[in-house]
Design a protein around this nucleic acid. Sequence first.
DNA 1: CGTCTGACACTTA
DNA 2: TTAAGTGCCAGAC
Length: 101
Amino acid sequence: MSFNDRVYEIVRQIPEGKVLSYGQVACMAGSWRASRAVGYALHRNPYQGKVPCHRVVFQDGRLAKGFVFGGSGVQRQLLEAEGVRFTDEGCVDMGKCRWNP
DNA sequence: CGTCTGACACTTA
DNA sequence: TTAAGTGCCAGAC
């Protein structure tokens, strides 16, 4: 079990309508500073389709600039379809949609 | 094996 | 408040 696998397992457990920040995932994985590693792990995303990487956003609730799996616009569409609230600024309502068990 | 880069987060100026 | 700098982990060269 590596840090990378831990990240996948955590992201995969995110319920619909909820999102997580890179820092949050990194903290659950063991190191809150490994936010970069989290982003890179999702970038490779070997479990694409099983791991909802679109539910992982910035700490502010904003989406990545140049996403790889289809574009940030697609990510917003996916999140909206799951019930995630978006502001006019294109940010997710972390106050209500942040998955915090 | 050493070095650089990258879907970030946090601190300080 | 905004901007810049620093630190972390994993992968690629």
